[in-house]
Design a protein around this nucleic acid. Structure first.
Lengths: 329, 329
DNA sequence: CTGTTAGCGCATTCAT
DNA sequence: ATGAATGCGCTAACAG
């Protein structure tokens, strides 16, 4: 049978529903005896108060909830994004529901559920796009959606110019004289990586090579660097689509006697926390700003259903030169 | 006046509430004309559907929500904890509401609200304790609370033995011959830091010194290290209560010509992501396990109100020796 | 101390 | 295509 209500409890305990309510809410105006009976009935039936009914009856104030779907585990990039979102939403008295999704399928399941249950007032989609169909669903339900780190046709989005990022990667290496550049890519399943690759290819010196890896962590960077040294020994510049990759690559290179940056230059991407301390040259993504904009926008769209036309935003990238680049030789 | 309901909209648009409901839910069985009128009324009145009422009427399934209060901004420690919690809750079909709190006052405000609004079914408290009074409030409302990284008298908690951590810090330095040890502490307002300090004091060689800093970031570590070099030049071991502090301290020491670890040994605390790549000797906290246990426990307590007596858990610490410690000289 | 009653705001028949 | 009526599960007066 379906979930028991206070009526079921009341009947079973031989009391009125008000008494059950009192017990639930810890009122002291209940005799220990009846309280016990009610408790027992609740335990036996596995009673769980219905949250929606509670809030409705109590006249609790509105509190919007926005859920953010993010592939959280992948990189520290999302840590910074998350912090920013959290801050904005908190100040807007909006609940921040964090949904960690592993892959697209996972995300789809959650999106279906959100639509079916209408269980939030806004959605922030990180590094993930929407199908047109699903966009229409959200649209008719008037649940605003914004995308972050993603170039969406359907919803307002904030991102950086990843193609430009790819170009900056190669150009910075070239500036210091690198001729044989390797690009370490995360899976091409991710659009942002494909975009960076495209930009890189546009400007890289002809002998460049591209290497793809599943994960974008330190271990992968270290492993791919081995591969690079073997198949592309003349390499004098390594560009990575994530900072951890660069850390791993640098480690391997140095272990193999290559000086960084005198023999090989290395660059990361993101400028995650601690990269300054590590001296990694990298391309800074304005992570806080990305999160802030997404959160601000969703809050605005929630309170102003007709908040004007979708307004996208492209934030600037910045090359941060530190110790892993410099003139070769 | 209070928030407009569909009755207000219906009245203003000269239609029945059912029609308003249809418009809200994107039903196509509404003439464009009336739809327009309803839309306009909604816009003019700033209508926002009441989420609780919606779910109640729609008979939506229960979905528990647990909110985690965490001082998110402070360190990457919480990133790992957060990941673990997120994973467990997601698998338990439980919403994960993240509440970033800056300080105790902030936390108190949020806790008051949670109690007043009964807006969640469980609470995970990170690095923060409960007053007895507030514990009683949660208790009578039957909202379970668990604490993480905190030694609470009132609620089940999971943590490491921070005193032992303090001892390990000093003992590891001593093992390699360090006689003049400095401890860099975060604010003594945090219990965990006080505990580590206590442990450290128990076993440190007599000439030790303790330094306190507000923040536990790289910059603070670098700054305090300057101070240490000035006021405690004979220092040959620096123990920190957080990894970033140690990174900063190492940087300063090396800039001042002190070799690490030959002249001065340095240790961090936590073993955050990337510390392996950085070669920092540190004391590993089982961050994932902490988060997993907290989430598992809260899920269990929600589904089993009488889940037996509070069961605390103390997880083991592990010294991870890397490149910043080793025999002096 | 306890039971009765009346909504909370909305989705949903069932009429029309 | 639209309106009236009913009930979701609970809290909060109001009676007793």
């Amino acid at each position: 049978m379906s979930a028991p209500t206070i009526y079921d409890i009341a009947a079973r305990a031989g009391v009125g529903i008000a008494t059950v309510s009192r017990v639930i809410n810890g009122s002291r105006r209940v005799s220990d005896k009846t309280r016990g009976a009610v408790q027992q009935a609740m335990d036996e039936l596995g009673f769980r108060p219905n949250h929606a009914a509670r809030r409705l009856a109590a006249g609790a104030p509105h509190r919007s909830r926005v859920v953010a779907l993010m592939p959280f585990f992948t990189t520290a990039f999302y840590f910074s994004v998350c912090k920013a979102i959290s801050k904005v939403l908190s100040e807007a008295d909006t609940d921040f529901v964090l949904l960690d999704v592993h892959d697209q399928k996972d995300a789809d399941r959650q999106l279906d559920r959100l639509i079916a249950e209408r269980s939030c007032e806004g959605v922030i989609l990180c590094s993930m796009d929407l199908t047109e169909e699903r966009h229409d669903q959200f649209s008719t339900l008037k649940i605003p959606v914004v995308a972050l780190d993603c170039n969406s046709k359907f919803v307002p989005h904030v991102r950086v110019d990843n193609e430009e990022g790819g170009r900056l990667l190669s150009q910075t290496l070239s500036t210091h004289g690198s001729q044989h550049q390797a690009l370490i890519l995360g899976t091409r399943g991710a659009l942002v990586f494909r975009e960076r690759e495209a930009g890189f290819r546009q400007v890289a010196p002809p002998s460049f090579r591209v290497f793809e890896t599943e994960n974008v962590d330190v271990a992968s960077g270290a492993r791919i660097a081995e591969e690079i040294l073997e198949s592309f020994p003349e390499v004098d510049g390594v560009a990575c689509v994530g900072d951890p990759l660069a850390i791993g690559a640098t480690k391997t290179l140095r272990e193999h006697g290559r000086r960084v940056p005198q023999d090989v230059q290395v660059m990361g991407f993101d400028d995650q926390p601690l990269m300054a301390a590590l001296g990694l040259t990298t391309i800074r993504q304005p992570m806080e700003e990305l999160g802030t904009w997404a959160a601000d926008t969703i809050v605005r769209l929630i309170s102003t259903p007709n908040g004007g036309p979708p307004q996208d935003l492209i934030l600037p990238l910045e090359v941060i030169e530190r110790d892993t680049t410099g003139r070769l030789g």
